[in-house]
Design a protein around this nucleic acid. Sequence first.
DNA 1: ATAGGGTTAG
Length: 679
Amino acid sequence: MKPTSSSFSTNFATTTSKRLQTSLSNLRIWEEFEAKTCLCNKILDGCPDVLTLKKLHAQVLVIDHLHSNPSIGIKLMRAYSSFGEPKTSRKVFDEIPAADKNIVFFNVMIRSYVNNCMYGEALLVYMNMWRYGVVPDNYTFPCVLKACSVSDNLKVGLQIHAAIVRAGLDFNLFVGNGLIAMYGKCDRLGDARRVLDGMRQRDVVSWNSMVAGFAQKGRFDDALEVCKEMETQLVKPNAGTMASLFPAVTNTSSANVQFVREMFNKMAMKELVSYNVMIAICVNNSLPTEAVEIFSQIESKGLEPDPVTIASVLPACGDLSALELGKRIHEYVVRKGLSQNMFLTNALVDMYAKCGCLQAAREVFDGMGLRDVVSWTSMISAYGMNGQGRDAVGLFSEMLESGVVPDQIVFVSILSACSHSGLLDEGRHYFRLMTREYKMVPRLEHYACMVDLLGRAGLVDEAYKFISQMTVKPSEQLWGALLSACQVYSNMSLGLVAADHLFQLVPEQAGYYVLLSNIYAKAGRWNEVTAVRSVMKSRGISKMPGCSNVEMGKRVHTFLVGDQSHPQTKEIYEELDVLVSKMKEAGYVPETNSALHDVEEEDKECHLAVHSEKLAIVFVIINTEPGTPIRITKNLRVCGDCHVAAKHISKITEREIIVRDTNRFHHFRNGTCSCGDYW
DNA sequence: ATAGGGTTAG
């Protein structure tokens, strides 16, 4: 409508003017409306950052006060919540006049809190809404039930269940699923089951929630039963089922792992999450090779790994010392702009550390904008594993200065670092710091570090006294630390005490029989050596076969003791013979003390000659350019003989040899080892 | 809207 000229009659002019005014004011309203809609959409589409959101919020307040348009308020609350600012959501919420505050506001407020881990606050809002005369609905209940689940709040959970029944919503699918999860988490599996059975309608989430309930309590068999039942009900397991099972499949039997693998294999449509869970399960059950294999399946299926995939597979790279793969993943992280994800940077630091690349680990660590206690722990234990106790101590102080609060785990790392470097006083200092300043109750792991520290320092009696004074029952690790100290320092009487406890705790562990046998051997008590050997035989205990991993090209090669299965076996053994004679010329004498004395001298020497790390070292020598460093990971501690041999080989072949055993790193260079023979 | 997957020690 265009304003007309006023050259007509006055009457007409007045009418026109009035019309004009109305239309102008309509226009203004319309403009405002449009501006608001536009703002709304901007808020809804998601702001790039909080600052932009706050600017938009300010404009909303200028144009008109919030209460004229409730939907803007709701969108603002959601947006603030998504930026982790539930408190700002609350401010918006509080400014809405009571008369306008309908159920949606309450639901969004509750959700804002729940999504930001403020469960108590969420439940308070729920309690308060009754006073406003607002009745919770089918959107409210699942959300508050989640708050109860996560915070293990059975008491409120039960109240909510009662309210649900009163509201007649107990047959709602989402509400029922929420109840199952809540009861499962609060260890009321019977009640969870009753809810499941009473539901008129169930979906895969209902079943998965039931599975999760058992799995979270480590009840794998019960979780498994539910999975089987699902199948009879023709509900197909999905990625969620695997994810729900996951907690029950950490450090579990291979049969349990196998079950999940089969479920995984049977899935017609595999989502990324299924792969991620499968990788995590492998990593958590000492199957790093399988984890890496599943990771490559993701790549070959054309799926794109997400941050969870990466964070899950990196520990497997570390376990295998698969440095090349680790580097490739690092590049991927950088390329995808994920370098600020702390899960990933922490995992990268640890991967490099476990691959023996202290420098690379440190570079990632130094490049981090933010560091949490996990970052520091990884770096501290990296130094610890490499025998650089002083650096670990320095880093611990830096961590405290940076304001990061130490936890139990970082104390394990620093204590272990001290023990590996023989820093006796420092170790004692940290134990006191932990118990006195930070008022932490030492766990078995801390005690084990202390016994190790004292034992390695030769204070075997004090180590034993330390164990005796403990208020908790000593674990296998504690007696194990004492026993190996007894071996190093030839303390037979305490060695027997430790061995006695160990044979009762873990009668199947071959390693402790070997240690005891070595103690006897050092003392020349051959009859006892034979006796230990025959006990082992009669109990059917055999040594866990030593195995070494080495990465070559795109795969990891594994060698067992005396392995003859590798395609290059012939060349490897021939080259080893050549090396051994060169070593003998340089003064190498096979150290037979490291083996069980149950065989003739030559056999022993022969047996030692084929320890897995030797095979792996030679394998790398014949397949790489001169000068290429050799990185080996093994599943047992490196034996005395292999340690001497590796020193010689590093000198003869002019190669750096980096061996990670179950305990620490050994960097062999030019005939010496970084551990200074202290391990 | 409801469940479920990630990094650190020993």
